[in-house]
């Protein structure tokens, strides 16, 4: 009986929390919260969090972490912007400046983890500072703006009534969900997270998978960098500061474990939405930004404690 409750909790716990908070806000702010416009707004605000959280989830899945994603968001956004300023076409700027740069920065993280055998926490703490430094040098600490209109339309526009960032985030989540659940790569990553020694003896190439995991995290951060630049209409050198907190929180609230090998992309998406809903709700309720931080922090601790409590009731 306990086991059954447990598995139901693991499958639907995050969804339950999301519904609970949504209903709660619907009651507290009936006029504004549950309107179609506002819900679209929530999705739009959550899109960047969901993007980076899906990448972060991979790093957490192998019992690692990626603290550099905020800096990758800034650096890829900056390179994309600069490339457009230098006259490259929009698709090339997005592909090279955003996605490829993200992949390369992720590969640097993964390569360093493999080469130094340090914990990813240390490595990405270092690259977080390095990537940020490069962004500041490149930009002279000044924002870059003035892009072709087609860039903003392509990335931050709308298709029918849906914002493109939402479509991008959902597409990324769908692809990564496919990777985790349907491919050998995904299964191997879970195995590596569950028991890295056993994974090695089972023929899983730990270094290769670690590299791929950080590349995935880099690419999602790179896409987030492009989306952010397009939405703001400028590449800010200090963009993405503190993003790793939201990404980690989404993943953990969504059911991932720091010990690795646990969680699903769907849960992470819901984790990202929970954070988005709460932020939005607190705004509607006129709670000042500084208090929102406190709520967010309490939520992370609360969600994980609740999960532990329920999981330990075997």
């Amino acid at each position: 009986m306990g086991n059954k409750f447990n598995s139901i909790w693991q499958k639907y716990g995050t969804l339950g929390i999301l519904i609970l908070i949504t209903v709660l806000l619907g009651i507290l702010s009936p006029k504004y919260f549950l309107t179609p416009n506002n819900l679209v707004q929530v999705a739009l605000q959550s899109s960047i969090t969901i993007l980076i959280a899906c990448g972060e989830f991979f790093a957490i899945l192998i019992a690692g972490i990626d603290l550099s994603i905020g800096s990758i968001v800034a650096l890829t956004g900056m390179i994309t912007a600069k490339m457009m300023a230098w006259g490259y076409s929009v698709p090339v700027a997005i592909l090279v400046g955003g996605i490829m740069t993200g992949a390369i920065l992720g590969a640097i993280n993964g390569g360093l983890v493999n080469a130094t055998a340090l914990h990813p926490f240390i490595v990405t703490l270092g690259t977080q500072a390095i990537f940020r430094g490069i962004t500041l040098i490149m930009s002279d600490a000044r924002p870059v703006y003035g892009f072709p209109l087609e860039f903003k339309n392509a990335i931050a526009g709308w298709i029918w009534n849906i914002p493109i960032p939402v479509i991008i985030a959902l597409a990324a989540a769908l692809i990564l969900s496919f990777v985790t659940d349907m491919t050998r790569l995904g299964r191997n990553i879970y195995a590596l997270g569950g028991n890295s020694q056993a994974a090695w003896f089972s023929g899983i190439n730990i270094k290769l998978h670690t590299l791929i995991v950080f590349i995935i995290s880099g690419i999602t951060a790179g896409i987030a960098g492009v989306v952010m630049t397009a939405r703001l209409g400028a590449a800010e050198p200090l963009a993405g500061v503190g993003f790793e907190t939201y990404a980690i929180a989404s993943a953990i609230i969504g059911g991932a474990s720091f010990f690795g090998g646990k969680g699903k992309i769907l849960g992470v998406v819901m984790g990202g939405l929970i954070i988005g809903v709460i932020n939005n709700g607190l705004n509607l309720l006129n709670v000042a930004t500084y208090y929102q931080q406190i709520v967010m922090g309490a939520l992370i601790i609360g969600a994980v404690t609740l999960d532990r409590f329920v999981s330990s009731r075997k």
């Binding site: 195995a191 997270g193 569950g194 028991n195 020694q197 056993a198 003896f201 690795g260 090998g261 646990k262």
Partner: peptide, 9 residues
């Protein structure tokens, strides 16, 4: 436990 199985599977 250390090198044989995957406890999460």
């Amino acid at each position: 436990r250390e090198t044989g199985f995957f406890p999460n599977f």
